[in-house]
Design a protein around this nucleic acid. Sequence first.
DNA 1: GAGCACTGC
Length: 723
Amino acid sequence: MAYSELRTTENSIKTSTQLNKKNIQNGNKDDFFARKQRLAQQRKSLPIASVEKRLVEEVRKNDTLIIVGETGSGKTTQLPQFLFNGGFCREGKVIGVTQPRRVAAVTVAKRVAEECGVELGQRVGYSIRFEDMTSNSTRIKYMTDGLLLREALLDPFLSRYAVIIVDEAHERTVHTDVLLGLLKNVQKARSQSSSQQCNTEKNKSHNNSAMDDNENSQCFSLLIPCQGRKYPPLKLIIMSASLDAKGFSDYFGGAKAVHIQGRQHPVDILYTLHAERDFLEAALITVFQIHLEEGPGDILVFLTGQEEIESMERLVKDRVQQLPEDKHKIQTVPIFSSLPSEQQMLVFRPAPSGFRKVILATNIAETSVTIPGIKYVIDPGLVKARCYNPRTGMESLITIPTSKAQALQRSGRAGREGPGKCFRLYPESEFAKLADSTVPEIKRCNLSNVILQLKALGVDDIIGFDFMEKPSRMAIVKSLEHLFLLGALTDDYKLSNPVGNQMARLPLDPIYAKSLILASEFNCLEEMLITVAMLSVDSIFYTPREKMKEARDAKKSFASQEGDHLTLMNVFRTSAEFLEKRKMSGSKDKTAERSLGKWCRDNFINSRSLKHARDIHSQIRGHVEQMGLRVTSCGDEMLQFRRCLAASFFLNAALKQPDGSYRALANSQIVRIHPSSVFFRTKPECIIFNELVRTNDDFIRNITRIDPLWLPELAPQYFAAQS
DNA sequence: GAGCACTGC
């Protein structure tokens, strides 16, 4: 295939010695000191090290600072240490650093603890869902941004923190965007609380005297809990890898932005001369072009989904047979999120000697997973993205062109260990037409959860909330209506008590949170806890292409005639009984867990999803018990449980049509039962469902049969007017 | 008889 001239994007800076994994495990004293010395050397050689004093000074001078740091600058690990040494943790205050992903929070915290020579969980720690590695002495705390949002519900002023660093802000996840808005309010309120004494007597009710103008009225509600208390100003640092700091700076009132040099090797970017019609074929040709003409080094190919990855794998294997025998040494390795972890791990294993590894990946390899040894990247310029239509309330996945930022992120994967090459399968003129950055997630998702959180944080005027980028009015109104129908909001759209408050405290989809509250009244909270935990995770059933029949039979053994909800519950309970038996018979916890892994494989269950569901189950159980909800079981009274499902998910009720499709009662939309449902063949007259996704058709998933007469009985406020 | 980018509480 023809490519245009090579172009060099970034300057090369030599990297220091790589870490030697072996030495970490060795408790040997010499190794310990050698490693310590090496760590210190590495720290000193980071681009950020030379500007330590200046950075600390800038943070002292500016309440908000934007830091643009390229990959490898060391900003995430070093800046918190600089600030700690600079005295920002006086009086027991904490430096919080947020990350969009759990793995990042954990690995960075471990690294920093080691650099500081302290035990993880002491001065340096991390906190993510299901795992808290912090203590009273923790001063540098890495955490996920979603977790900090949850913390804000309990401590609206984030009073423990002197500094909050929002890392990877350019990724613009929903959590990051909500957090930025919240932090802006907290910062404003805290600087006012320290400059202006709150008047405890006068401010019992909503009273604007503590604020200068209406624009500030939103942080007023945040002020209430701090009445009479004083807080030091909150230092805010927004760190981004994208070169465009202006958006963040503008949002924070013209905050100062500083730039820190990165340390990437140069990556040559090549474009095709013409637009390619078939990107799979173009990628295939490029793989072999690299294999035959370029030096050693592994290839990373970005594809849109599992299906493309699997067909690409077959194509490479077929095509390699046409080459002379001495050119056969290619090994393909797929990676995507729903792949079982053991198979995911294979991408990290070096290819056999003399072989070239070709990694076929979704955008899991863009940020979440860093694979060593990549020298070549092939980027067709496409990505599958979630879209939300607020009018229909429907989510869908569509393939769209990447943004420039995303293309840059992908090409950067070729320059982590040495100079690399990136082949973009489109002409350079097309690159110029790409959007600069990806549309923030908050503009393309259902907002019910976001709104419930904001309401619980005291933000009543959602439409007036100062989002960095405002979601559409329609999306906001739609979600407000939805929350109102669930009973989370009152007639004047305030958070209801106790229902709305309880729902906001549960880390679940609002509709699932509501179902738990209802279940305690229906005496089936035990069952509903299991159900919502199982509904909250990715697909539980795993169906490998080559073992379809076995997988289907395994699934049948769990199937319930009542529907998918009870089927999921059967899986959960059977696995729990299995684990219990193992532990009773004297197996250690670890051994029992391992045999659960085998049980999962035998039953074609995705063990990662099941583990996740078990974690959610125990976490949520703790929450509902704390709230004082009664956790009781309906035993064999499945009718009672199905009635509770109907009462919970009445917004998703549907009636069978003569042609076997269904009509959703809420909006008369015609939908079809997904083939993964137990009701794909035997179709009941009336059902409730949990998920509506558009793929080749408008499919509904997770379905239970109900009696249509229950609907007006259990949700009269909704169905009375309609019948 | 389908096919599910990726995170997160």
